[in-house]
Design a protein around this nucleic acid. Structure first.
Lengths: 130, 130
DNA sequence: TATTGTTATACTCTATAACTATA
DNA sequence: TATAGTTATAGAGTATAACAATA
């Protein structure tokens, strides 16, 4: 099961890398940007917990996304230690396109599955790790 | 989909590493040994194709498994360039136990799924990458 | 004392180029 | 010329320890 899930993931990621390259987003960048996009003000720690990343490995990603003007770091309203991460207008525009591209490639890569099977597959996978 | 498949795979692999450590087998070692176990005489190239590995990364694995006395390298009957990989009695004995352990942990890790759902999940995953 | 974010660094995994021996 | 196996090495991904600032 672990083997098959890994092979399926790598198969999708292979096409993902190709299709999302024009946006300058690798899978981890995409998942970070997507989480910030749909949860403005999220902190680094929350991102790490949600995406199963380690804090030291997130630092460079955040710095890179900020340098590209895709996100902004704002002081957290209630915690002076934390920093809220917000998408810029440019980041929002990029993610709207990137998420459509990702959705399209996912359907293409799972073209041997029906829509119902795609939903079943997602549900079963999440029952394993959530 | 790629994200969920990866998270599920990593979740299973995490427990796999723990449970198979007593056998000295990491996931890639297990899949290599399992393929040799069930396909005695298989070549390195065939292993690479079946498991999606690159030849340079297989060399060290094979040498390690041979040094541990789990496999033997025998001349290929029809191709002087190739080497057939065969499990030793010790390797067969190890894999019989290791495969049972792996099967058990897989059922445990997917305990929120029924047997029918486990089969469905495997079928759907294979439809993506095969 | 615990937590957020960070730096430095080590370790593992994966990928590429080039070589040899044989087909 | 093409393929099997190998070597060396580069690059990406992942991991731990330790630190400053704030709770």
């Amino acid at each position: 099961m672990g083997y098959n899930a890994r092979r399926a993931a790598l198969s999708i990621i292979e096409l993902f890398l190709e299709r999302l390259a024009p946006y300058g987003l690798k899978p981890v960048d995409f998942s970070v940007m997507s989480t910030i996009h749909h949860n403005p003000g999220v902190t680094s720690r929350q991102l790490c917990a949600a995406l199963n990343l380690l804090p030291p490995n997130l630092v460079g990603l955040i710095q890179s996304l900020e340098a590209r003007g895709l996100i902004e770091r704002k002081p957290h309203p209630h915690d002076g230690r934390a920093v809220g991460l917000h998408p810029t207008d440019q980041g929002i525009a990029l993610m709207q396109q990137a998420e459509q591209t990702a959705s399209d490639l996912e359907v293409e890569k799972t073209s041997r599955l029906t829509a119902a099977q795609r939903k079943t597959l997602l549900d079963l996978l999440q029952k394993i790790y959530l």
